[in-house]
């Protein structure tokens, strides 16, 4: 069994994941899930993000694992290879995913960091096209990657193989516009499984809520749901929002299609869009655009809102940054 899983993990960690992402992407397009929102600018940004960062990151990680660490701590190479597989698996899974939770959460809660993560949230759609979309500096400083390289050097390479495969699978499917978790909420018999699943790992419902263009409307919640592989961190730290529903709109309410190169390389390159967070004198965090209330013809005294993407300005805290 373990050999079988090992073969699958090795294949996935090789060319398996790019192939899976391409296949899922084609399926999403065939089902029309991008709804003509994949404009030329978004297209270039998504494709460059998919190809370029891994090419830049690979030599850096290789240098760290093959040159730098053997030079500074040669005596610790494989020093912990005695750690039993199951414990190694948990140590790596927690170290990697909890570190990514913090990296992600701090980019939302510390205003200065938000613009490095904004590129991932600006996509007005969910799916394989935007799953790898990131500012290059954000990708480059992915803290958990370096931590994992160190743990692999110390001798936890074998369990790391499995963790990486499992994590990429969960994160990829959580970003997908194919809502694979829907049947778990629909059929009563599956509700207990859904209850465990949505608290343990990231699902389309919880992760789509994080990518919603609105928050605090009962569905969208970009102030939380920061978990990548495990959603459990959000449950433990009180940043979770579970609604079993999917947002009506994704992205950033004030997004005006900043140039792909600015989104990829901010702060080296700036956006030409006036007032954008990525523009030369743009704010670090721009406030959400609030939908205008429209008066219902039936009762003019009770204003209704056009969409479910309302966020009260009273609830707008400085930490509400995307």
């Amino acid at each position: 069994m373990i050999k079988f899983l090992e073969t699958i993990s090795q294949s996935l960690n090789g060319l398996g994941f790019p192939a899976l992402i391409l296949l899922l992407g084609i399926l999403e397009f065939s089902l029309g899930l991008y709804e003509k929102r994949w404009t030329k600018n978004e297209r270039i940004l998504d494709i460059v993000s998919f190809i370029f960062p891994p090419l830049v990151l690979a030599p850096v990680l290789a240098f760290l694992g093959l040159k730098f660490l053997p030079h500074i701590i040669p005596q610790y190479h494989n020093a912990f290879s005695w750690v039993p597989f199951i414990w190694g698996f948990f140590i790596i899974a927690i170290a990697d995913d909890l570190t990514q939770y913090w990296y992600h959460r701090l980019h939302h809660q510390i205003p200065f960091l938000w613009r490095f993560h904004r590129t991932h949230h600006s996509a007005p759609y969910m799916g394989m096209a935007m799953a790898s979309r990131q500012n290059i500096i954000y990708t480059f400083l992915f803290s958990q990657i370096y931590l994992t390289v160190i743990l692999v050097y110390l001798g936890l390479g074998y369990p790391a193989l499995f963790v990486r495969a499992l994590k990429t699978l969960i994160v990829t499917f959580a970003h997908s516009s194919i809502k694979w978790d829907k049947p778990f909420y629909k059929y009563k018999i599956l509700h207990p499984v859904a209850w465990v699943l949505e608290r343990l790992i990231s699902t389309p419902a919880t992760h789509h809520a994080h990518h919603s263009s609105s928050t605090d409307d009962g569905v969208g919640y970009y102030k939380g749901n920061f978990g990548n592989m495990f959603f459990l961190w959000d449950v433990i730290f009180g940043t979770a929002h579970i609604s079993r529903r999917y947002p009506k709109a994704y992205g950033i309410s004030h997004y005006e299609g900043d140039e792909w190169y600015a989104q990829l390389l901010w702060p080296i390159l700036k956006s030409k869009k006036e007032g954008s967070e990525l523009s030369r004198r743009g704010p670090a965090v721009r406030e959400d655009i609030v939908a205008e209330p429209v008066l219902s013809s039936a009762d003019q005294h009770q204003p209704e809102f056009q969409t479910a993407t309302i966020k009260s300005l009273n609830n707008l805290s400085p930490s509400a940054i995307n």
Binding site: R105, L106, Q109, I110, P111, F237, G238, P283, A284, V285, S317, P318, S319
Partner: peptide, 12 residues
Amino acid sequence: MKIDPQTQKSIL
């Protein structure tokens, strides 16, 4: 823009 004290406390 500064981080609000409530968020700061919860982070810590």
